[in-house]
Design a binder for these strands. Sequence first.
DNA 1: TCCCGTCGTTCGACATTGTCGAACCCCTAG
DNA 2: CTAGGGGTTCGACAATGTCGAACGACGGGA
Lengths: 248, 248
Amino acid sequence: MGDTIQSVERAAAILRLLASGPRLLGVAELARALGLPKGTLHGILRTLVKVGFVEQDAATGKYRLGATLLHLGSSYLDVNELRTRSLNWADALAGRSRESAWIGTLHEGHVLVIHHVFRPDDSMQTLQVGTYLPAHASALGKVLLAHDPYGEAAPPLAPHTGRTLVDPGALERELDQVRARGWAAEMEELVEGEVALAAPIKDPRGIVVGAIGIRGAVERLADGDAPRMEFVSYVRDAARAITRSLAH
Amino acid sequence: MGDTIQSVERAAAILRLLASGPRLLGVAELARALGLPKGTLHGILRTLVKVGFVEQDAATGKYRLGATLLHLGSSYLDVNELRTRSLNWADALAGRSRESAWIGTLHEGHVLVIHHVFRPDDSMQTLQVGTYLPAHASALGKVLLAHDPYGEAAPPLAPHTGRTLVDPGALERELDQVRARGWAAEMEELVEGEVALAAPIKDPRGIVVGAIGIRGAVERLADGDAPRMEFVSYVRDAARAITRSLAH
DNA sequence: TCCCGTCGTTCGACATTGTCGAACCCCTAG
DNA sequence: CTAGGGGTTCGACAATGTCGAACGACGGGA
């Protein structure tokens, strides 16, 4: 035995592939992507189907993710201490700012959204919990990158709007600023017309374990090129409150 | 090889145990629960940690679910065709009824919530997507049980309120009624003061693949002991609309 | 302070376990 | 009707994961 169980790793790789797009994948397709024989993959898939992690389309025989994963994912939310501790503060932040509130953590180079409160009095928003935001093009991401202990080799800085920071040097200078002043802003760098603010949440040892912020229309959150400072304080207040409550 | 990969199955069992409660579990604890040697479990856990499905607590060395699962779970939502097709209708149903709207499927004897729209103009609700409702004590569950092809051996009928149906015979009669009239009601059988209504969603072959419904305060949704029929039509309209749209 | 029990972890021999590729059947397209 | 691709099955092989004992660290009780 090396030091890691091959079949389990392969099963995980299959799940990740299935999750990478809404398309159903067939045995042959997966075999090509992973460079494994079809028979091998079939065995793993059969097992994954049995435990409910994968479902097989009755019509085409192709495979997709299974419902059990949805349940496991929502169980993760219960386990995540940062999230459970932050629920009330995120609600309060959304209430004070009257904007949508977000909590995220760094995960595999992206920002994983672990909580999301809709903007008050505004329906028709889709919940983003469990989705990724680009780290370099979101306020949450800037906060997390700025305090990331590993420097987390940045993936290619994909442009999302004309204002997205795509130059590594420019991003680095921005992160310096974030570290210096303790909060981050993202001015229409992810979606035209949207602005986001965020501040770091720290554990008792001072390590940044997450970020909380808000996102909303540029005309409400910004004044010219700069964010409105009242919203910055809302966000920083919330971050400080959560940091304090994490100190047991 | 039997017909299923042992290590993958064991990995899944570990994940399910970790998901069964918010408590962190140690190697020894898992070994006892699964009746396996500690060393074996450690190998699987190490692999699960590597792929991000499990995280190890730095302080205690115990294990909990990992963030990757949250992302996989939310990917499932994108893949689920029933859900993506129903999003707009659920929004519309919540809007017309001014109550929270729910969509669920039967999964391992429970109702798995795959979509949930908050009640309009009412914040401070927590999202229930990915959680289970008891099948025998919810309107969604009654609809799904009534049309379940396998008869799905009912787990023990746990009481939630004084009005929960705990007698298998009574439940069976209720299901007969649901089948006959095409919709289900749940009158304070899960939570005191709350009433729910639901109707079946069918695929092109006529098989029930899910249910949609609403849930709200008894004083709004019911009139004495009976549900208000206007809400019943809202729900049935939505269910029919989705059924129709599933016919491509 | 010491000791004991428990925890997570490591290790190496063993044989169980999963791997692999060819062959199979079914379906669709041409 | 054929050809090609899909998902699936099968059995021999050896690579693979399993197992239990032993290790070091931690922590609570006396």
